[in-house]
Simulated assay, not measured.
Amino acid sequence: MSTVYEQLITLLESQRARYRVVGHPAEGRSDLVAAIRGTHPGQGAKAMLCKNKADNEGWVLAILPGDRKLDFRKVAAAGNLRKATLATPEEAERETGCVIGAIPPFTFSPRIKLVVDPGLIERFPEIAFNAGRLDTSIILDSSDYVRIAQPLLEPVCV
C-alpha cells in the first residue's frame, strides 16, 4: 500500500500540476512551517478533519488559510451535519492515513467530503501544505489544486 505522500505525487504528476516539494524539519504548527518553507501563513492549506458530533460520522475535511480559524457552524452547513466537531487525533489518522498537522488538502476516501474556504485560493497564486508527512511540504499552483481536488468551495472561516 502506498503512502499518502506517494499518492499525492502520483496524482499531481498524472494531472501535470505545477508544484514543488520542500523538505524541512518536522513541524505541525501552520505559522512555524510557513516560516520554514518561506511562504505566507495565509498560503498554508490548514486541513481539519471534522465529523458530526451526534454520531461520529459524516466526515468533512475542512481546508482553510493557515492564518484563519475554523467556524464549526459553517462546516456543519457545508457538510450537511447537524453539529460539527473536530475528529480526535486517532480518528484523523485512521480516516486520512496521516497524523494531525500532516493531513494534505486532498481526500483519497469517498467517506470524506472536501470543503475549501475560497479565501485560501483567492489570495495567493500558490498554496502550501504538508504532504502527508510533517517533514515534507508541497507548494502547488492554486488553480491546479482546484482543478485536481475538485472541492466544494464554501466559507468555513470565522
Rank of each mutant, 00 (worst) to 15 (best):
P65L: 08
V75M: 08
P89K: 07
I9R: 08
S143H: 07
T107E: 04
A131P: 09
F124K: 10
I36V: 13
P151I: 04
A47Q: 04
L134C: 12
V4R: 03
R29G: 04
D144Q: 13
R82A: 11
I36P: 00
V75K: 12
A45H: 01
V4I: 15
P25F: 03
T39K: 10
P151R: 05
R82H: 08
P105H: 08
T3R: 00
G97F: 08
K83Q: 14
G66R: 09
V115N: 08
S2G: 04
L153A: 07
A62I: 09
T88R: 11
R29Q: 06
A17G: 11
G44P: 00
E90G: 09
P105V: 06
A131F: 05
P41F: 00
G101N: 03
F129M: 09
T3V: 09
M1D: 13
S109L: 11
V116Y: 01
I112Q: 02
P41Q: 07
R82P: 03
L81A: 10
E57P: 03
A45R: 00
G66S: 05
Q15W: 05
V156W: 02
R16L: 12
I63F: 04
L86A: 10
C98K: 06
T10D: 08
R123G: 13
L120T: 08
S14K: 15
I148F: 04
G38Q: 05
V75T: 07
L12N: 06
R16H: 13
I103R: 04
V146A: 11
S142Q: 01
R111E: 09
G38K: 06
L140E: 04
L8H: 02
D55G: 13
I121N: 01
F108R: 12
L140A: 10
E6V: 07
L11H: 03
Q150F: 00
A128V: 10
V21C: 01
T88A: 02
G132V: 11
F106D: 06
E95F: 07
V75D: 01
A17Y: 09
T3S: 15
Q15A: 15
A131I: 06
L11R: 09
V4S: 06
G58H: 08
C50E: 02
Y5N: 05
A62N: 03
K74W: 01
K53S: 06
T88W: 02
G119S: 13
K113C: 06
F124W: 13
V146F: 00
S137D: 11
A34I: 10
I9L: 14
P155V: 14
L49Q: 03
D67T: 09
E122R: 15
K74N: 04
M48L: 15
P118T: 07
T136C: 15
L114C: 02
R147Q: 00
P155F: 01
Q7W: 04
A54W: 08
L140C: 12
H24W: 07
T10G: 06
V116E: 09
A17L: 15
M1Q: 13
N130M: 12
I103P: 08
Q43D: 02
F124N: 11
L120A: 11
I138R: 05
T39M: 09
D117W: 13
